[in-house]
Computed example of a mutant assay.
Amino acid sequence: MNQWSEVFTNLKSLTLAMNKYAEYLTKKSEEKSLNQSLLKPVRSTEECTSMVVLPSNTSQVPFVVRKFQSLLDKIRDLPGFVPVFVNDFLSLDRKMRYEELTLLKEHGLSYPTVLFTHSPGGNVGNFHFIWKIPEMSTSCSDDVMSKSVCVTQSLQNQLPKFHTRQMRREFVGMFGKIAKVKPYYLREMYKRLTGDWTSAHDTDAAALDKRVKQFLQLGDPDIVTDLREHNPGRPSKYEPFWNEVEKYMENVVETAVQERRHGTVTYLATAMSVPNLLECVSKVCPPEVPIPSPQWLRLQFWPKKPNIKGITAVHRTPQN
């Protein structure tokens, strides 16, 4: 019995841990559902922004000076209260970027500045802006703070916004019924009108949004075309093979089920699968006719545009 006591203790600890994790996931799922049902962004601008005054530091550490030399050169040539996007001067690695920002906040630059940070949440990361202020200004100067607030207001259009699913659904539902516009067009319209940065809810929607954005930028809704249209008049390599397939389908298969289907005995149709069809047609093809692979032959029976009603396969459709 003693040899199982340790196993029982470990199993009990594992069960309790899994139960707590399940409760955590349930709670997060409920919070997410609640947030997505809101008709306003989950986080307001005031909740995700911060502003701090960095005093000038004349005794700069050489390492810090080298690290931010390009940022110093950029700010030096600009007048006061003109924002610079700090992220362009930081490392792409998240850990190194955090360390660089910590150095900037601790040591500052060779002249007083204001560091503005926008933290929208999620995996997007933070957006940092910095601007120079007059040398004699202090952190409690009302004039500096009022002008800095004006700078932050001018940055609002450049900052990402994340709207809830209900906000987007209401827009698409309202205007989709009136204008009868496709949902992917309405999604792109909503993003351009509101500045919403929210990603698509699944991979299919993301692919559609990417294509819509592409042909809107190029001004050509037919930009995604079949590349074979660029080779007019070029004969198909497997056209002789398809001629033999047509003959076989008409002369041998004829119907979906064998004519002797009435009675107690049931007969299956000829060419039960794509490999079987390929084998049967290959036997009657002349030696010089190219034979495709089973994968290529199967592809020819697939629809040109999946998930759309009323479409036809590339080469053949079933008979009613």
Rank of each mutant, 00 (worst) to 15 (best):
L104Y: 05
L104K: 01
E106L: 09
G108Y: 00
L115E: 03
L115I: 11
F116A: 02
H118L: 12
S119K: 14
P120D: 04
G121N: 08
G122R: 05
N123T: 02
N123M: 11
V124A: 09
V124Q: 04
N126C: 12
N126Q: 13
N126T: 10
F127S: 01
I130K: 05
M136E: 11
S137P: 01
T138G: 15
S139N: 06
S139K: 14
C140G: 04
S141Q: 07
D143E: 15
S146W: 03
V149R: 08
C150I: 10
C150D: 03
V151S: 02
T152H: 02
Q153S: 06
L159F: 06
P160R: 08
K161D: 01
K161S: 04
K161L: 14
F162D: 01
F162R: 09
H163M: 04
T164H: 09
R168V: 10
E170M: 09
V172G: 00
V172P: 00
K177Y: 04
A179Y: 13
K180E: 15
K180W: 10
P183V: 07
Y185Q: 12
L186N: 04
K191G: 04
L193Y: 07
D196N: 13
W197F: 07
W197A: 01
W197N: 06
W197H: 13
T198C: 02
S199H: 09
S199F: 07
H201R: 14
A205F: 05
A207M: 14
D209R: 04
D209A: 10
R211K: 14
V212Q: 09
K213C: 03
Q214N: 05
Q214M: 13
F215Q: 05
F215G: 05
L218K: 12
D220V: 14
D220W: 06
P221C: 09
D222M: 10
T225L: 05
T225S: 08
D226I: 12
D226P: 01
E229T: 14
H230I: 13
H230A: 09
G233C: 08
